[in-house]
Design a binder for these strands. Structure first.
Length: 397
RNA sequence: GCCCCGUUAGUCUAGAGGCCAAGGACACAGCCCUUUCAAGGCUGAAACCCGGGUUCGAAUCCCGGACGGGGCACCA
């Protein structure tokens, strides 16, 4: 590289862009992109400074004339556009969205999950939608048709729909493996008692049982004549002295005999989210996970489970959440309000549900642009519905 | 109480130590175009939370503070 020539070119460019006065910083910075070594800056600093001073003293016409001659020496800064690249995405990506079937899908879900669909479109691979119906108390029967309907419309690239409660046997297999690895135990403490142990960083009495005893106690959880609902819970054996209280022997499964809308009374022991998610992510070979910041600690728990099985944890990003100052975004509250007659149904135009937004004429592409503009960011933002609809209206054109 | 995380214009965002004297989009103001509306074009106003430190040089790295968010469930 001809340092002097390049310096002169960039100094002229910089001067012309800034009322005739070039500065050293930007010029040196440009030279780095041309291959100047950082360690060599000292060597050339004097020369560069001289050239800049000389350039600055030229007349406007002279600057323009000289720059014309050297124009081809300068390269333009390259601009990125579209979605930020994901690491290790060369062979495609496997990603997922796990809606809980406890109420209608709404704008909040779009914001934090559509980006997964977009990345699968970008790189190829698989996009799973997994209906997370492992809580028999909050699972709504209509979700089994509403979720695929909304997701087909919104994403258009769902590879496969899976239902957690159809995979219970798989979760049970993993429970046995975890117990056999002495990484899970059945705990009979009440939640209040356990909380006290966790706060005091002390082991609960159930922690000391042998693997054999725990397998037996696990059978007692599964057996109708064994533990009753609320009497026992399966816990992951992490560390009761973990510095983060959220990580101390968190629960993996519990007994709940409420009739399940899909499985009826087939099961009484239900996995909790962290178990189901970890198992599915291992089994389905998830490569990348993008999810809300509120799941940061859950991801840490799932990672602990991965480590027991010596599996590599997927690349994970925690995306910031959008908070709406004037819209209900709680699935439970939306469901209640519809039941009470406050709203006519999930398609009520006053609701931020996907069904309602579709009815109002918004196209999936508008949401995609909204999500793309936001991109991968950990920042939460507060926005009101007026701002949101301004943006959507703009993107919908 | 204990663990995480974040902070760029009214809003969303670019930004990986020097092409940032901070770019883009929406919204806003003005003008042009148009019979009207919409769309489009041009122009304008508008931001790096605060304080230290490292460095020749900090929006960017480090430390502290303030503010905001999340987690510590037999919910997800």
């Amino acid at each position: 590289m001809d340092i002097e020539k390049k310096t002169r070119a960039y100094a002229l460019k910089n001067a012309l862009a800034h009322e005739g006065k070039a500065m050293q910083g930007p010029v040196i910075s440009s030279l780095f992109n041309e291959g100047l070594k950082k360690s060599d800056v000292g060597k050339y600093a004097k020369k560069i400074s001289e050239i800049i001073m000389e350039v600055n003293s030229l007349s406007q016409e002279e600057k323009e004339k000289q720059f014309k001659k050297l124009e081809k020496e300068v390269s333009e800064r390259q601009e990125r556009e579209g979605l930020e690249e994901l690491p290790d995405s060369g062979k495609g990506v496997v990603m997922r969205f796990r809606p809980a079937p406890s109420g209608p899908l709404h704008i909040g879900h779009i914001i934090s999950n559509m980006i997964c669909s977009l990345y699968v479109k970008k790189y190829g691979g698989k996009f799973y939608v997994i209906i997370d119906d492992t809580d028999p108390e909050t699972t709504l029967p209509e979700a089994y048709k509403d979720i695929p309907k909304d997701c087909n419309w919104l994403f258009g690239n769902v590879s496969e729909y899976l239902i957690s409660s159809d995979r219970i046997k798989l979760y049970y297999d993993y429970v046995e493996k975890l117990i056999k690895k002495d990484s899970a135990y059945v705990c009979e403490c009440s939640s209040e008692d356990f909380k006290k142990f966790a706060e005091a960083k002390k082991n609960c009495p159930c922690r000391k049982f042998s693997v054999e005893k725990n397998l037996e106690r696990w059978k007692n959880m599964l057996d109708k004549s064994g533990f009753k609902e609320g009497e026992a819970v399966l816990r992951f054996k992490s560390d009761m002295k973990h510095k983060n209280p959220a990580m101390r022997d968190f629960p993996l499964a519990r007994i709940n005999e409420t009739e399940h809308p899909r499985q009826k009374n087939k099961y009484r022991v239900w996995p909790l989210m962290n178990l189901a998610v970890a198992v599915d992510d291992m089994e389905l070979k998830m490569t990348h996970i993008i999810r809300g910041k509120d799941h940061r600690d859950n991801a840490e728990r799932q990672k602990m489970i991965f480590e027991i099985f010596k599996k590599k944890f997927p690349w994970t990003f925690f995306i910031g959440r959008m908070k709406f100052t004037d819209m209900i975004l709680s699935k439970r509250k939306i469901t209640e309000a519809i039941k009470s007659g406050e709203f006519s149904g999930t398609e009520d135009v006053r609701l931020p549900t996907i069904a309602s937004l579709r009815k109002r004429g918004y196209k999936p592409e508008a949401f995609a642009k909204l999500v793309e503009q936001r991109g991968l960011t950990e920042v939460d933002k507060v926005i009101d519905s007026k701002e949101l609809f301004r943006l959507l209206d703009y993107f919908n054109k």
